[in-house]
Design a protein around this nucleic acid. Structure first.
Lengths: 196, 196
DNA sequence: TCCCTAACAGGAGGCTGTCTCCGATTAATA
DNA sequence: TATTAATCGGAGACAGCCTCCTGTTAGGGA
C-alpha cells in the first residue's frame, strides 16, 4: 500500500508508472491466492506466471519472499495492533489479552507455515517482517503488564514468552489432525499462564 | 540397524555385501553430523559427498529423507519407549508423564526442524517415521491415562493433545532467542494441564 | 500530436537441490 | 581364477531461487 504511492499519503517520491502499478497489484492478488492455497513456501515463479508477469518483475517489486509477505500482512498487522490498544481500556485484562491473542492466532492461520516465518523474522533484524512483528510485541507487552498488575496473570511470565507460546500454538494448530483445534490448544496453554 | 542384517537377529535375507555395509554405515555417520549441524533439511548430496559415496548409493539405501531419519532415530525412540514403560510403575503419575515428555523433547532438540518433520509424519501413514511415532503415542496414552486416573491431570485432555503440545513446545524451543528456554516453556504449558 | 528518455518488463542463465536410471565395477563364491 | 549377482555412482531431467541485461514503453515536454 505504502509502495503504491497512491496520493493520500506523503509522496516523497514520484508515483509509480501505470504499468508498474498494474503489475504490482496483480502480483499481490496472485501471491495472496497462492500463499493461501499452498502455504507460505509457494513457488514465486508460479505467482509471477499466474500474474502474467516475468519473474524479474516480481523480484524488482519484492526483492525477497519476506518483502512480499510483509506487504500482504502489514494491513492486517496494523489492524491487530489497533485492536490491541483498544483492549487496553478493557476492565478484565486477562480476557483482553486472550481475546487479542486469539485474533493474532487467527491471522497466523490462513497461510500455512506462517508461524515458522514469523518466528524466524523475530530473530532477524534485517527482515522486513521484523518491524511489524516488533510493533506487535510492543502491544503484547502492554497487555501482559496490565494483566499482571491486575493479579490475573502469573507474575513471572514475560511478554516474549507469551508470544512465543502463541506462535507455538498457531504452529500446532496447523499440524492438528482435525485442524480446528487451535482455540482448544489456546485454552489449555492459557490455563497455565493464569495467576494461581 | 535391522537393515545391516548383522548376525544377531533373524536373517531372513542374505547379509549385506561388505562394501554395501561400509557405505551404509558411513552414510549414517555423515547424516547424523549433517542433520546436527544444519538441521533436518541438510543437503543429501552433501551427505553423500562427505561419506565419499555417490548420490545413487544414498538413495538406494535410504529411498527418502524420512527413511534416513527414521534409521537414525529408531534406536533413540526405542529407548524412549522403554523409559516410558518404566515410568508407568512410578508412584507420581504426573511427574512420570512430565519426566518422560522432557526426555522426548530433548530428543527433538538435537536436529533443527525435527518437530516439523515428526508432526508431518503423524499425518502420513506411508512415512517410515509414522510407525515409530505411533509407538510413542501408545506409551504417551498410557502415561496420560495413569495421571488422569490418579486425578493429577485434567480429565478432558487427550494423549494426542498432550503430544501435540509437546511438539509445539519443542518447536518453540528452536525459535527461542536464548535457546535454553525449552524446560521453562514445558513448565508453563504443563501448569495448564494439571487437574484443578 | 509526436518524440525522447527514464523507468520498467521479463526471460535467459547460473546455481543448488531432488530423485531416477542404467552401464561400469566389484565382492563373494565355486 | 572365472563367474555372476549385487552394488556403485554419475549423468541427466526437473524444479526452484535469484540476477543480470537487453528490449520495450509510459508519459511529460516541445
Amino acid at each position: 500500500m505504502s509502495r503504491l504511492k497512491s496520493g493520500t499519503e506523503m509522496d516523497t517520491s514520484k508515483p509509480m508508472r501505470a504499468d508498474a502499478r498494474r503489475n504490482y497489484e496483480r502480483l499481490l492478488v496472485e501471491a495472496k491466492r497462492a500463499f493461501a492455497a499452498r502455504g507460505v513456501e509457494a513457488s514465486l515463479e508460479d505467482i509471477a506466471r499466474q500474474a502474467g508477469v516475468g519473474i524479474g518483475t516480481l523480484y524488482r517489486h519484492f526483492p525477497t519472499r519476506e518483502a512480499l509477505l510483509e506487504t500482504l500482512l502489514r494491513e492486517r498487522f496494523d489492524a491487530q495492533a489497533a485492536a490491541g490498544r483498544e483492549q487496553l481500556a478493557r476492565a478484565e485484562p486477562l480476557v483482553a489479552l486472550k481475546t487479542w491473542l486469539a485474533g493474532l492466532s487467527a491471522s497466523s492461520a490462513d497461510y500455512r507455515g506462517l508461524s515458522e516465518f514469523l518466528a524466524a523474522a523475530l530473530d532477524d533484524e534485517t527482515s522486513p517482517l521484523y518491524a511489524s512483528c516488533h510493533a506487535m510485541q510492543e502491544v503484547a507487552s502492554q497487555l501482559v503488564e496490565h494483566a499482571k498488575a491486575a493479579g490475573e496473570l502469573r507474575g513471572d511470565v514475560t511478554a516474549q514468552e507469551v508470544l512465543l507460546l502463541l506462535h507455538a500454538v498457531s504452529w500446532a494448530g496447523e499440524h492438528s489432525p482435525g485442524g480446528g483445534g487451535l482455540p482448544r490448544l489456546l485454552d489449555l496453554v492459557f490455563e497455565g499462564l493464569r495467576a494461581s
